[in-house]
Protein backbone atom coordinates (compact mmCIF):
# COMPACT_ATOMS: atom_id res chain seq x y z
CA UNK A 1 0.00 0.00 0.00
CA UNK A 2 2.61 2.46 1.07
CA UNK A 3 4.59 1.76 -2.08
CA UNK A 4 1.40 2.18 -4.11
CA UNK A 5 0.76 5.77 -3.00
CA UNK A 6 4.42 6.68 -2.53
CA UNK A 7 3.43 8.89 0.38
CA UNK A 8 5.36 9.87 3.45
CA UNK A 9 3.86 7.99 6.42
CA UNK A 10 2.66 11.13 8.23
CA UNK A 11 0.65 12.24 5.15
CA UNK A 12 -0.67 8.72 4.70
CA UNK A 13 -2.08 8.73 8.22
CA UNK A 14 -3.83 12.05 7.63
CA UNK A 15 -5.18 10.66 4.37
CA UNK A 16 -6.55 7.60 6.16
CA UNK A 17 -8.16 9.80 8.81
CA UNK A 18 -9.79 11.96 6.12
CA UNK A 19 -11.13 8.88 4.33
CA UNK A 20 -12.49 7.63 7.67
CA UNK A 21 -14.27 10.91 8.43
CA UNK A 22 -15.78 11.25 4.95
CA UNK A 23 -16.76 7.59 5.02
CA UNK A 24 -18.44 7.89 8.42
CA UNK A 25 -20.26 11.02 7.23
CA UNK A 26 -21.46 9.25 4.06
CA UNK A 27 -22.71 6.24 6.02
CA UNK A 28 -24.52 8.46 8.55
CA UNK A 29 -26.02 10.55 5.74
CA UNK A 30 -27.21 7.41 3.93
CA UNK A 31 -28.95 6.07 7.00
CA UNK A 32 -30.33 9.30 8.46
CA UNK A 33 -31.65 11.20 5.44
CA UNK A 34 -35.46 10.82 5.47
CA UNK A 35 -36.81 9.08 2.37
CA UNK A 36 -38.98 12.05 1.38
CA UNK A 37 -36.12 14.56 1.58
CA UNK A 38 -35.80 16.35 -1.75
CA UNK A 39 -39.22 15.25 -2.98
CA UNK A 40 -40.30 18.87 -3.61
CA UNK A 41 -37.17 20.77 -2.65
CA UNK A 42 -34.42 20.95 -0.08
CA UNK A 43 -36.65 19.80 2.78
CA UNK A 44 -38.56 16.77 4.02
CA UNK A 45 -41.52 16.22 1.70
CA UNK A 46 -43.42 14.22 4.33
CA UNK A 47 -43.64 17.37 6.49
CA UNK A 48 -46.44 18.57 4.20
CA UNK A 49 -48.47 15.44 4.88
CA UNK A 50 -47.81 15.70 8.61
CA UNK A 51 -49.05 19.29 8.70
CA UNK A 52 -52.12 18.22 6.72
CA UNK A 53 -53.11 15.46 9.16
CA UNK A 54 -54.17 17.79 11.99
CA UNK A 55 -57.79 17.65 13.11
CA UNK A 56 -59.96 20.56 12.13
CA UNK A 57 -62.01 22.49 14.68
CA UNK A 58 -64.25 24.47 12.33
CA UNK A 59 -66.42 22.23 10.14
CA UNK A 60 -67.27 24.63 7.31
CA UNK A 61 -70.63 25.73 5.93
CA UNK A 62 -71.21 22.55 3.92
CA UNK A 63 -71.16 20.36 7.01
CA UNK A 64 -73.77 22.61 8.68
CA UNK A 65 -75.98 22.55 5.58
CA UNK A 66 -76.21 18.75 5.65
CA UNK A 67 -78.56 18.87 8.65
CA UNK A 68 -79.67 22.52 8.83
CA UNK A 69 -80.42 23.20 5.16
CA UNK A 70 -83.69 25.03 6.04
CA UNK A 71 -81.91 27.56 8.24
CA UNK A 72 -79.09 27.81 5.72
CA UNK A 73 -81.46 28.55 2.80
CA UNK A 74 -83.21 31.16 4.93
CA UNK A 75 -79.88 32.79 5.71
CA UNK A 76 -78.99 33.04 2.01
CA UNK A 77 -82.06 35.21 1.30
CA UNK A 78 -81.18 37.98 3.73
CA UNK A 79 -78.49 40.48 4.61
CA UNK A 80 -76.53 37.96 6.63
CA UNK A 81 -75.92 35.73 3.60
CA UNK A 82 -72.18 36.39 3.69
CA UNK A 83 -71.83 35.03 7.21
CA UNK A 84 -70.67 31.52 7.89
CA UNK A 85 -72.69 29.57 10.46
CA UNK A 86 -69.57 29.32 12.58
CA UNK A 87 -69.03 33.11 12.58
CA UNK A 88 -71.71 33.39 15.28
CA UNK A 89 -72.14 29.82 16.50
CA UNK A 90 -68.46 29.10 17.04
CA UNK A 91 -66.45 26.05 15.99
CA UNK A 92 -68.68 23.17 14.92
CA UNK A 93 -66.56 20.16 14.02
CA UNK A 94 -67.32 18.46 17.35
CA UNK A 95 -71.03 19.18 16.86
CA UNK A 96 -71.04 17.88 13.28
CA UNK A 97 -69.42 14.61 14.38
CA UNK A 98 -71.74 14.20 17.36
CA UNK A 99 -74.79 16.49 17.03
CA UNK A 100 -75.86 17.49 20.53
CA UNK A 101 -77.35 20.70 21.88
CA UNK A 102 -74.56 21.27 24.37
CA UNK A 103 -71.55 21.20 22.04
CA UNK A 104 -72.44 24.21 19.90
CA UNK A 105 -72.80 27.87 20.86
CA UNK A 106 -76.52 28.69 20.69
CA UNK A 107 -76.60 32.07 22.43
CA UNK A 108 -74.86 34.49 20.17
CA UNK A 109 -75.90 37.89 21.57
CA UNK A 110 -72.24 38.87 21.98
CA UNK A 111 -71.74 38.29 18.26
CA UNK A 112 -74.38 40.94 17.34
CA UNK A 113 -72.71 43.64 19.41
CA UNK A 114 -69.24 42.70 18.30
CA UNK A 115 -70.01 43.67 14.71
CA UNK A 116 -72.80 46.24 15.07
CA UNK A 117 -71.71 48.43 18.02
CA UNK A 118 -70.81 51.84 16.57
CA UNK A 119 -67.08 52.33 16.17
CA UNK A 120 -65.48 55.13 14.14
CA UNK A 121 -62.99 52.65 12.70
CA UNK A 122 -65.66 50.56 11.04
CA UNK A 123 -66.43 51.30 7.38
CA UNK A 124 -69.40 53.60 6.76
CA UNK A 125 -71.39 51.06 4.70
CA UNK A 126 -71.65 48.76 7.73
CA UNK A 127 -74.86 49.13 9.80
CA UNK A 128 -73.99 50.27 13.31
CA UNK A 129 -75.84 51.31 16.45
CA UNK A 130 -74.89 52.81 19.80
CA UNK A 131 -76.15 50.01 22.01
CA UNK A 132 -76.89 52.13 25.09
CA UNK A 133 -79.07 54.54 23.09
CA UNK A 134 -80.69 51.73 21.11
CA UNK A 135 -82.41 49.20 23.36
CA UNK A 136 -81.70 47.59 26.70
CA UNK A 137 -83.25 44.15 26.10
CA UNK A 138 -82.15 41.29 23.91
CA UNK A 139 -81.42 41.83 20.22
CA UNK A 140 -83.73 38.91 19.39
CA UNK A 141 -86.70 40.74 20.93
CA UNK A 142 -86.92 42.69 17.66
CA UNK A 143 -84.46 41.07 15.22
CA UNK A 144 -84.18 37.59 13.74
CA UNK A 145 -80.46 36.87 13.25
CA UNK A 146 -81.03 34.45 10.36
CA UNK A 147 -83.25 36.92 8.52
CA UNK A 148 -82.46 40.42 9.83
CA UNK A 149 -84.93 42.25 7.58
CA UNK A 150 -87.90 40.30 9.00
CA UNK A 151 -89.83 41.60 12.00
CA UNK A 152 -91.03 38.84 14.34
Amino acid sequence: MRRLFKMPPQLFRIFLLAVGIVGAYSVARYFLTPPSFGEYGWYRGAALAELATRDQVYAGKKACEECHSDEYQKLLKHEHKGLACESCHGPGEAHSNDPRKDNIDRSSFAACVRCHEANPSRPKWHKQIVIKNHYSGKCTDCHVPHSPSEVP
Binding site: L48, Q56, K61, H80, S87
Partner: peptide
Protein backbone atom coordinates in the same frame (compact mmCIF):
# COMPACT_ATOMS: atom_id res chain seq x y z
CA UNK B 1 -49.75 30.81 9.56
CA UNK B 2 -49.91 27.61 7.50
CA UNK B 3 -52.93 28.84 5.51
CA UNK B 4 -54.69 26.18 7.64
CA UNK B 5 -52.83 23.52 5.68
CA UNK B 6 -54.95 20.73 7.19
CA UNK B 7 -58.09 22.47 5.90
CA UNK B 8 -57.04 23.56 2.42
CA UNK B 9 -55.73 20.06 1.63
CA UNK B 10 -59.26 18.78 2.43
CA UNK B 11 -60.95 21.31 0.18
CA UNK B 12 -62.00 23.70 2.95
CA UNK B 13 -61.20 27.38 3.33
CA UNK B 14 -58.79 28.53 6.03
CA UNK B 15 -60.64 29.14 9.32
CA UNK B 16 -60.20 32.92 9.16
CA UNK B 17 -61.69 33.07 5.65
CA UNK B 18 -64.51 30.73 6.66
CA UNK B 19 -65.73 32.92 9.53
CA UNK B 20 -65.10 36.37 8.01
CA UNK B 21 -68.62 37.87 7.90
CA UNK B 22 -67.89 40.52 5.25
CA UNK B 23 -65.57 38.66 2.84
Amino acid sequence: CTLCYHRITRGLKPACVEVCPTQ
